[in-house]
Design a protein around this nucleic acid. Structure first.
Length: 831
RNA sequence: GCCGAAGUGGCGGAACUGGCAGACGCGCACGACUCAAAAUCGUGUACCCGGAAGGGUAUGAGGGUUCAAUUCCCUCCUUCGGCACCA
């Protein structure tokens, strides 16, 4: 017997599998398909266990499905556009393209060393022109379908570098630029958006999806649907009317402020209005004597990070604009304030404040001496007094001070109020979402250019589809200002208007990389296809994705975008079916040995290369499956590898080392028992694969190894039963450790390849126990164990229990009060 | 603050319809082999009392339901993740 040397057998088999095309996935109508997708890695260059951890177990499961008769597609690719490539370029003077593709070469080599069943012919790279050509095509389709539009939106901007900053490039409490430490300012730019909100309701429906409850809850909260009403409040433009008789109708107003409220029933209790400091009407409603104060407040609000502005325990602040609106339900004049607790990004950016029944409004009103008016009297409570109540009260009870609603219950008042505002023409029932439209413009170079052209005469028009891809120029200057190279390029911007043929300009913004990753599962279907984003017959056979694996951190962004994308394309007739991915499973995160997130700056990154070189990919694959609950993850431990490495050496020895008979005469080999243990393990392992419980798959195989080694020593070696056990063992091992399984399969004279073999069938009869050991408790405490035939009746078990010496001792001659025989699993005697 | 996940030996974890808590592995200790080391093999390894037989206590803390609770219910604590004044 030679030694187990993974460094020799692993590259050998990887080469052979590649040469034989063992993992090529092709349409085969005779077999059921299984599309197993694992989230594509970003080309950061440092492939570590954060990449292996989701992929190696996913690969094992894909292999398991293949052995179960499925035609399995398990593709891989690279998410190659994005900010880190530009940062590397600026820092080290390497072109982003060069940096990215060098990283891909390295990552590809590392991924190959894992021995996964990736079909490399289907590799897709989002930065390839042949890929982003179709990303651009999808943009145009969304634009034509009316789902893309432009609007002004603020970005974080460094005035010194003259560049837009991503959130991660803004550091510290003073919000400074990561490069030059200049404080960041907000800048309004016109940018492209997708109407994700048009699909908000549909995205809340998870019917038919086998997705974790956790993710569904996260998405539901992210979409944040709330039902209420929009109500228009007229602005009083003539200040002399502010103090006039409220019963007189004021017709002097030049504009309306719309608020969204989830409690239209409390409209009569609104005593002030609050606008977000960024609200477009702030300047208009502000009176001259308040202007300086309002401007100062706006400036400090704009300087704050969302996080500071939104701190829960922060004291409410705001300033009065001097302006007033009319409450349209009762004609009252109410003052307009601005406050940073109202956000422009949610609802209409304006609220009606009802301090008696909303705690935030209450705190604000008390601080600034604004009236608190009770409009709901909770049942069974002393009549409330707005002037003295210590806190707002929950809105359930009977309506008071509410015009026509007075006397109705608060439950009915909601609908009555909506009806009232609709009849008066001052508002309507409305649904609002926390979900915002998807901002896809990036003021960056290393991304897919947005294929739009601006003509002074014809406006914005898409590049004709025949002219795609709209190529990213390579000859860009990397100026230390950090300004977008596309803007600085001498000629790139120049274009012909697709409508009139006149001089026009290209869009210089590029697309959010989430756009590229919203459809990569479609590009895998036919990455070389040049007549469309994918080939129809491939789509018809493989889609939808059956199993999608990846990190929980993508629950709200990527996984909502890709669902939106699929649904929008479906409405255009490009895709089919309600959802792109039927089943989702999330793995946890592998942390550094210090328990912190792996990162270069912390210096706790563990790369797989050295460990593969030392112990082999199989031992590492097994460790990643064995050492953690997959959905939890945990800190890396360098010692664990000894365990799986030792296990594989023992498997090697068990299978290959011949033994002379009679090594252990004392424990005769029990054929029936060997077979039973094999099929019991098979049953467990099969179930665990189905349920993504990888750690117990490996521990089950370790246990069976221990049993088989004992049987071997007892004389099983060489018998037909032994050979059958080895056969099943290797098949179970194959998805976990594909190289050693193939090697042992060959060395025991079996037919190439183990990876095209069928998963063994569980023999229920063989797995069944003939005798069972039943623990016996007296008053819930374990006192004895009895052995009975597996088909013993409850009466027989009871009799055997009472005959036990240990039990008699604890009964002390007294008759038992109750004897419980629990499902033939346990006996409990109550004295 | 809200939402979610999770608290089990020195460590990772197991216990899959409420039924033997600690499988499997790491680490550690002792032993075999060896001139020695590594590798390998064997034995032991929750805690407390006891020489042993045996007994007691234990699944974050406290309470409840039950013959029986890591598992179900209530209250609280801790850790991690996400969201964050959502009108």
């Amino acid at each position: 017997m030679s030694d187990y040397i993974p460094q020799e057998i692993e590259p050998k088999w990887q080469k052979k599998w590649e040469a034989d095309g063992l993992y090529r996935a092709a349409i085969d109508e005779s077999r059921p398909k299984h599309y197993a997708l694992t989230m594509l890695p970003y080309t950061s260059g440092d492939l570590h266990f954060g990449h292996w951890y989701p992929m190696a177990p996913s690969d094992a499961r894909a292999r398991f499905m293949r052995m179960n008769g499925f035609n399995v597609l398990f593709p891989i690719g690279f998410d190659a556009f994005g900010l880190p490539a530009e940062n590397a370029a600026i820092k080290r003077g390497i072109h982003p393209k060069k940096w990215t593709y060098a990283n891909i070469d390295n990552m590809r080599r590392q991924l190959r060393s894992m021995g996964a069943m990736f079909d490399w012919r289907r590799e897709a790279i989002s930065a390839d022109p042949e890929y982003y050509r179709w990303t651009q095509w999808f943009f145009i389709q969304l634009y034509k379908y009316g789902l893309a539009y432009r609007k002004m939106s603020p970005v974080d901007f460094c005035p010194n570098c003259n560049t837009t900053l991503a959130r991660e490039q803004v550091w510290g409490e003073d919000r400074h630029c990561e490069r030059c430490e200049t404080p960041v300012i907000k800048k309004d730019l016109e940018q492209w958006f997708f109407k994700t909100t048009a699909y908000a309701d549909e995205l809340l429906n998870y019917e038919g999806m086998d997705w974790p409850e956790r993710v569904r809850v996260l998405q539901t909260n992210w979409i944040g649907r709330s039902v209420g009403a929009e109500v228009q409040f007229p602005v009083i433009s003539d200040q002399s009317l502010v103090n006039s008789d409220p019963s007189k109708v004021i017709t002097d107003h030049s504009s309306l402020i719309t608020v969204f409220t989830t409690r239209p029933d409390t409209l009569w209790g609104a005593t002030f209005m609050v606008l977000a400091p960024e609200h477009p009407l702030v300047d208009k409603v502000t009176m001259p004597e308040h202007r300086a104060e309002v401007e100062a407040y706006k400036t400090q609000a704009a300087r704050q990070a969302d996080i500071d502005r939104e701190a829960a325990d922060k004291e409410k602040t705001g300033v009065f604009t001097g302006g007033h609106v009319v409450n349209p339900v009762n004609g009252e004049r109410i003052p307009i304030w601005i406050a940073d607790y109202v956000l422009m990004t949610y609802g209409t950016g304006a609220i009606m404040a009802v301090p008696a029944h909303d705690q935030r409004d209450f705190e604000f009103a008390r601080k600034y001496g604004i009236e608190v008016r009770v409009v709901i009297q909770p049942d069974g409570m002393d009549p409330l007094d707005g002037a003295t109540m210590p806190a707002s009260v929950p809105a359930s009870g009977t309506m008071v001070n509410s015009g026509p609603l007075t006397g109705t219950s608060a439950d009915e008042a909601f609908h009555a109020a909506v009806k009232f505002v609709e009849q008066k023409g001052i508002g309507r029932g409305a649904v609002n979402y926390k979900l915002r439209d998807w901002l896809i413009s990036r003021q960056r170079y290393w991304g897919a250019p947005i294929p739009m052209i601006l003509c002074a005469k014809c406006g914005w028009n898409p590049l004709p589809e025949a002219d795609l891809p709209m190529l990213l120029p390579d000859d860009v200057e990397w100026l230390p200002t950090g300004q977008s190279p596309l803007k600085l390029h001498p000629t790139w911007k120049q274009a012909k208007c697709p409508v009139c043929g006149g001089e026009a300009e290209r869009e210089t913004d590029t697309m959010d990389t989430f756009m590229c990753s919203s459809w990569y599962h479609l590009r895998y279907l036919s990455p070389q296809y040049d007549k469309g984003p994918f080939e129809q017959k491939e789509y018809d056979y493989w889609m939808p994705v059956d199993t999608y694996t990846g990190g929980i951190e993508h629950a709200t962004m990527h996984l909502i975008y890709t669902r939106f994308f699929h649904k929008a394309l479906r409405d255009m007739g490009i895709t089919e079916g309600p959802e792109p991915m039927l089943q989702l499973r999330n793995q946890g995160m592998i942390l550094g040995e210090d328990g912190e997130k792996m990162s270069k700056s912390r210096g706790n990154v563990v790369a797989p290369d050295a460990l593969v070189a030392q112990h082999g990919a199989d031992a590492l694959r097994a460790l990643l499956m064995f050492a953690y609950r997959w959905q939890d993850g945990g800190p890396w431990s360098s010692q664990g590898i000894e365990g799986t490495s030792r296990w594989l050496r023992r498997v090697w020895t068990m299978v290959l080392e011949s033994v002379s008979m009679g090594k252990s005469e004392t424990r005769p080999y029990d054929e029936r028992n060997l077979r039973r243990r094999v099929h019991q393990t098979l049953k467990r392992v099969t179930r665990d694969f189905q349920q993504f419980e990888f750690n117990t798959i490996v521990s089950g195989l370790m246990e069976l190894l221990n049993d088989m080694v004992k049987a071997k020593e007892a004389g099983a070696y060489g018998t037909p039963e032994w050979n059958g056990a080895v056969d099943i063992y290797l098949r179970m091992l194959a998805p976990v450790c594909p190289h050693i399984a193939e090697e042992l399969w060959e060395r025991t004279g079996r037919e190439y390849s183990i990876h095209t073999q069928a998963w063994p069938k569980v023999d229920e009869d063989a797995a069944r126990e003939e005798e069972i050991v039943i623990p016996v408790q007296v008053n819930g405490k374990l006192r004895d164990r009895i052995t009975v035939p597996a088909d013993a009746t409850e009466e027989q078990i009871k009799a055997a229990t009472l005959a036990s010496e240990a039990v008699k001792k604890f009964l002390e001659g007294k008759p038992p009060k109750k004897v419980i025989v629990a499902q033939k699993k346990l006996v409990n005697i109550v004295v």
